[in-house]
Nucleic acid binder design. Structure first.
Lengths: 322, 322
DNA sequence: CAAGTCAGTTTACAAATGTCAAATTTTAAA
DNA sequence: TTTAAAATTTGACATTTGTAAACTGACTTG
């Protein structure tokens, strides 16, 4: 169905596509001029160019520097002591068209991710719609010797993307080694969770998460329709209790309070995922968030020093400064 | 005059340009839709997008893999034992429009160059119209810890580009440290050349050329209108003598015979440039050539193992195989 | 304060691009 | 050899994009 998923290209066709693309995008010829040269119809040139784009032979990239070098990003950077802040802007109310806002944030986050990741890095990836958006907008770029690991166990939900998807897609786009976590994000009892964690393949992966160079994750709020509830992972009672106990956000299925410290409340003991202290150990911590409903949660994470790099939409950025 | 030479961008404008560019190239909105969102006229959006392209905020790149993965490149690679071959094709007779062919080859060569160069490399750059074409098509991409050195002394000529230009431009585009060679490519006498070579700053640079990781150069033929003659560096008598002695091409102002071995003929002893043995020492040797009049010369260089990577136009590629 | 500059606007038009359906050619398979 | 499938072409058309010229208002600057 999706042409772009077909990696193999008939070898000589690729050369043709590339050179046509260079004539169009590089030399600046019109499609008609190229058609005349190739002795084909203009429609064919249109199709060749589309194919070249779809196959990723032609890549259109936006420089990440400009997304972080502006006054809003600078203010935010200084207010929370961050290394870098990337701002996404759709120039309209992010709440009215959340899908579009998410895609734009995904593109900005993808740019940020490539900006930050370095050769040889061991990278941890969480999941959620925001991280999924990043993975979907990530272009196919080789980054050498990178290992990508899944930070949180898997889970089923029609709303939450299959957790491995984010990790697998990111790994495959940058040609990295991929380590998934073969366990549910949430076990039915604490005892069972403990057994899972001791299982060799799982414990090896959890150990791997303790020595990462970079993590990429998002944050959920603790409203009743938060992902963790929608995915059936936390009950409404548990959420209410957590709210009462002062929890302000959810990272890796774990609650944090207003200061960014972990709250050990149910169902934390049933979770199979990286610890928040594991995240802290990574030198580069990219937090990607979209939407003003995450304001409190994001502020908490930033106060707790859980992020070194932040990627947000402009409305949330402004709210974070006040 | 040239807006793109102005590196500094009003910081908030850059963010606007980037996000508009993402909406257009990423989200795929039309200019009118973007104009409606930004509450500006469509003409303004056109201008913003043009500005973003001119400033390099939007970069359109063609994947190098496709340029080397085709049957012609494979044949050439196997015939001469090369690591990689990149083919440029303008789909018309390269001789009738040499400028266009050169630009296309420059783009392909720029892609190849970025494909080949690695972090920490010490790179040597020769000069000539072909290498200049490469330098002019090189996008602005940061490559860490690279040193770029000039392989051949400088020279004046209206036809040959100022030799430092190639080196300087390439270094500046990839953010590399740049080492120029502050000497003429040709001294008036052999004794003077020897004095030049002993001059501390020059001898230091020549030493530097003995430990390169990568070299990028082109090759000239030995016709009467070759660059070296046009630049007044070699007399017609010298060229005729060289031809009679079996010289087939000119690299770094030095003659090579049909087997790619150096011919020590005048004015070789007056030349101030890297030795051919210095080129050989570099692990990655990119030869960039355009035009069938270089057929014999290129074949000689390849036979002599002077190149590991080759970048040529398709007509020359076909000729090289027969 | 007047002149100049700058970003942006409007209007209008020309050029280029994307898309469709039907006809034709090419290619591969039976 | 025939036939079916795939690729390409044609011609027509709507949409999108690029460009020019004249104009507006805000903001320098001598």
């Amino acid at each position: 169905m999706n042409k772009s998923s077909n990696i193999y290209v008939d070898s000589d066709r690729g050369e043709r596509l590339s050179n046509v693309a260079l004539l169009y995008y590089g030399e600046g010829l019109t499609q008609s001029e190229i058609a005349k040269r190739l002795q084909v119809s203009r429609v064919t040139v249109v199709n060749l160019l589309r194919e070249a784009r779809e196959l990723g032979i032609v890549q259109i990239r936006v420089d990440g520097k400009q997304l972080k070098e502006n006054s809003l990003a600078r203010d935010l950077r200084e207010a929370y002591g961050l290394t870098d802040v990337y701002i996404s802007d759709t120039f309209e109310d992010a709440e009215t068209n959340r899908d579009a806002a998410l895609r734009q944030l995904g593109r900005v986050a993808a740019t940020a991710f490539l900006d930050i990741v370095e050769t040889g890095d061991r990278v941890g990836i969480a999941w959620g719609e925001t991280v999924l958006a990043l993975s979907e907008e990530l272009p196919r770029v080789q980054v050498e010797k990178v290992e990508v690991s899944q930070l949180i166990g898997s889970m089923m939900s029609d709303r939450v993307p299959a957790s491995e998807n984010c990790t697998i897609r990111i790994a495959s786009q940058i040609g990295a080694q991929c380590y998934t976590l073969h366990a549910p994000a949430l076990a039915s009892t604490a005892d069972l969770a403990a057994l899972f964690r001791e299982e060799p393949t799982i414990s090896a992966q959890l150990d791997r998460l303790k020595t990462l160079d970079m993590v990429t994750y998002s944050i959920g709020n603790i409203s009743d329709d938060t992902h963790m509830a929608a995915a059936g992972m936390a009950s409404l009672e548990e959420l209410t209790a957590a709210r009462k106990a002062g929890a302000k956000g959810i990272i890796c299925c774990r609650y944090i309070d207003a200061e960014g410290n972990e709250c050990h409340l149910p169902p934390t003991d049933r979770v199979i995922a990286a610890e928040l202290t594991d995240l802290q150990k990574a030198a580069k911590r990219l937090l990607v968030v979209c939407g003003n409903d995450r304001l409190e949660a994001t502020r908490a994470a930033l106060k707790g020093g859980l992020a070194t790099h932040l990627c947000v939409n402009s409305a949330l950025a402004k709210a974070l400064i006040n």
